[in-house]
Computed example of a mutant assay.
Amino acid sequence: MDSLNPEHPPLIMTPADHAPRVWKFFGTALWGLLIFVAMFVGQVGAILLLAALRGLPIDMASIQSVGREPAALALSVIMGLPATLAAVWLAIRIKKASFVDYLALHWPSWKQLLFGVVGLILVVLAWETMSRSLGREATPGFMTDLLQSGRDKGAAILLLFAFSVAAPMSEEVLARGFLYRGWSASFLRVPGAIILSSLVWTVVHLQYDMYFLAEVFTIGLWFGYMRHRANSLWLTIVLHALNNMTAVVLTMWLGS
């Protein structure tokens, strides 16, 4: 037997062989910042390109002017996706880890999907009820204006794709994908990773007031829980997409 043959000693697995190739707390935080910067550069780059194609000066006034247009804003959100994916791929590649496994890009079961959808509906309905009781809008006013303006200017489909596909994928890959994966393997463990990644995701939405930020945070907690429960980033991407698509459709076509 090989185990008794000195020329063929048995293979001994050291603890290092089993160590997951994962960025831990500080590595994940630093790379998370770089990924966010990449997303931002991709989004602003789209606006700058549009301004340049129109012969406008490349300055803050042009960026603000072009960026207020519904179609331009949609294109900006869409262009943030490839930039985000490229930065995440690089971070994972450096660790020589599997992109699919690192981000848990596994399809959930139908039961997990149904459970996630039901929970999301309950969270959203709770906030909807609270908003009505407080006499608040269920959707931020500026988003209502943007979406309805985009509908009137023929940018409805582009906006729908941007907010229902590109944005959920970019944000979930960053928050529940990369950040959660690294932080859950650190001293934060799963509960801390869910909370901190939800906080980061909330910060990405600073265009909202504190009330809507609180709603974003609670939805993020649900997404984080489902990411852990199902071990599937595709699940949170689908939930995020359904949430955004419902809001966009209701706002653009039903004025709600």
Rank of each mutant, 00 (worst) to 15 (best):
I219R: 09
H228Y: 13
S232T: 11
G224M: 08
A230R: 11
I219M: 11
V200Q: 00
S232M: 11
T236K: 07
N231T: 13
W222L: 09
S197W: 01
I194E: 03
S232K: 11
F223V: 03
T218I: 14
G220A: 09
A230M: 06
L199G: 09
F223N: 08
I219P: 01
W222H: 13
V216F: 00
V216A: 08
F223Y: 13
T236I: 06
Y225A: 06
A214N: 02
L235R: 08
W234Q: 09
W222K: 15
G224I: 06
R229L: 12
L196I: 14
G220V: 04
L196E: 02
S232I: 08
R229N: 13
S198N: 08
Y225S: 09
H228S: 13
S198D: 03
G192P: 01
L233G: 14
H228A: 11
L206Q: 14
I194H: 15
A214V: 12
H205D: 02
M226T: 15
W201C: 00
G224N: 08
W222M: 11
V200L: 10
S197E: 12
Y211D: 04
L206P: 03
V203L: 14
I219N: 12
T202D: 00
N231C: 07
L221S: 12
S198T: 10
L233P: 04
L196P: 02
D209M: 10
T218F: 14
I194Y: 02
G224H: 05
G192W: 10
T236Q: 15
M226I: 10
M210W: 13
Q207M: 15
M210Y: 15
F217S: 02
E215F: 04
V204L: 10
E215S: 01
L221N: 04
W201I: 01
Q207E: 13
L196Y: 05
R229W: 15
G192T: 06
E215C: 00
Y211N: 04
L221D: 07
L196N: 01
A193L: 06
G220N: 02
H205T: 06
N231I: 05
L199N: 03
L233W: 07
F223T: 07
S198M: 09
S232P: 07
S197Q: 13
F212D: 00
H205A: 12
N231S: 15
R229G: 05
Y225R: 12
T202M: 08
G192L: 08
V200A: 02
S232N: 06
L221G: 07
A214E: 03
W234I: 01
F212C: 00
I195W: 08
L206E: 05
T202Y: 01
T236A: 07
R229Q: 12
R227K: 09
F223L: 15
A230T: 06
L221Y: 04
W234N: 14
S198C: 10
T236Y: 06
V216N: 00
G224S: 14
T218A: 12
Y211P: 03
L235I: 12
N231Y: 05
I194G: 04
Y208D: 06
H228K: 11
G224D: 05
A214K: 02
W201K: 05
I195Q: 02
T236E: 12
S197L: 04
Y211H: 13
V204G: 11
R227T: 06
